[in-house]
Amino acid sequence: MFSRLASVSLALFALSGCAIHQTVKPVERLDSKTVCIVQNGNVRATFLDAFERALSNKGYEVKRLEADASLIACPVTSTYTASWRWDLAMYMSYADIVVYKNGKPSGKATYDATRGGGNMGKFIGAEKKITELVDQLFPITAGSGS
């Protein structure tokens, strides 16, 4: 009985380290229908493409800015970072998107599967995850007003 309880406890402890965390603080209503994205050359171009598509699908016009652009270059500016890992297959292990309104932080979405271990949920397609983050980060469609 004791060894069974110890085995179950050990298994639960091991699985607790296989966590995927996602936090989103949505942006408040935006007056602008344009979102400027500061390009990050250290991240796969497919991330920016998916990010732009997700915003466009919500009615936003996207303008790409050079990596050294100021956060006040546009009324609404966004930065991003992401990384990939290999574990049986390549997967996006981390993504962080920050939205600034007039240069001040207005919203943030973070996806962290770096401690995903045996959690098979980490193999979600990057574009699907990026779209999910954008949908939560921008809950209001551009021009809806509320």
Rank of each mutant, 00 (worst) to 15 (best):
V43W: 11
L88T: 15
Y91D: 09
S78L: 11
K101W: 06
Y80P: 02
V35D: 09
G41N: 14
K128V: 05
S93G: 09
A50H: 13
Y94M: 06
E132V: 01
V38I: 15
K25E: 11
T81M: 06
G118D: 12
E28P: 08
E28Q: 14
W84M: 12
V62R: 00
G59L: 07
V27Q: 05
G118S: 13
N57F: 09
V24Y: 00
F47H: 06
G117P: 10
S93K: 03
C36K: 07
A67F: 13
A19N: 08
K104Q: 11
L71H: 07
S93Q: 08
A14R: 11
Y80T: 02
K128P: 04
R44G: 05
T77V: 04
L55K: 05
E127A: 06
K63R: 14
F51W: 14
Y91N: 09
I37R: 00
K104L: 10
F13K: 02
T23L: 02
I97T: 01
A19S: 13
N119G: 10
Y111Q: 01
I130T: 03
T46A: 07
D112R: 00
V62M: 00
M92W: 03
C36A: 15
A45V: 11
T34N: 14
V35I: 15
N119P: 09
D49C: 02
V35Y: 12
A89S: 09
L71P: 04
I72H: 08
L48V: 05
W86T: 05
G107A: 04
M120I: 12
C18R: 05
